[in-house]
């Protein structure tokens, strides 16, 4: 059981994508905490693709979401320049907060909230697969 949406890489499209994801998650009775953590993770990825993979050029982002046994799986694919958010590490999370690189915070949260996150570069596309386990 899955669903797909294709969007232009514009930040304002987060509104459409977040509604699309939220509706899907609600169908599978995900609780408020699950939805919040899942949406936050997707937002970070979507924004990063818009800002880094496509930069000013712009392009299309395709999002597939499906339910798999006790997981929700979401796949982001884009034709932008190679961009691997899993490498976007925030090594200095323990350093003084004021000195931190702001960009790493979002990905740090994605890694905390999602059960898995895998990146691949295939046929000039960035493919990011994330899963989150349903239930506690």
């Amino acid at each position: 059981m899955g669903s797909n949406i294709k969007l232009k890489s514009k930040i304002k499209n987060w509104k459409i994508l977040s509604q699309f994801i939220e509706l899907f998650l609600q169908k599978y009775y995900c609780d408020k905490k699950f939805i919040y953590e899942f949406l936050l993770s997707c937002e970070e990825i979507f924004v990063n693709i818009c800002l880094y993979a496509y930069k000013s050029s712009g392009g299309e982002i395709s999002v597939d979401i499906c339910v798999l046994e006790n997981y929700i799986k979401i796949v982001f694919s884009d034709s932008g320049i190679k961009f691997d958010p899993t490498k976007f590490e925030n090594k200095n999370i323990n350093s003084k907060i004021y000195d931190r690189r702001p960009g790493g915070l979002g990905i740090f949260l994605v890694k905390k909230f999602m059960s898995s996150m895998k990146y691949a570069r295939k046929e000039n596309k960035n493919i990011l697969v994330m899963t989150k386990k349903i239930g506690r």
Binding site: Y36, L39, L40, V47, Y98, P102, L105, L109
Partner: peptide
């Protein structure tokens, strides 16, 4: 506030500074 992501954290940090 039902939702806060890293973009909001950045504004909080900016405000504090």
């Amino acid at each position: 506030v039902e939702y806060l992501s890293s973009s909001g954290l950045r504004i909080i940090l900016y405000t504090k500074k």
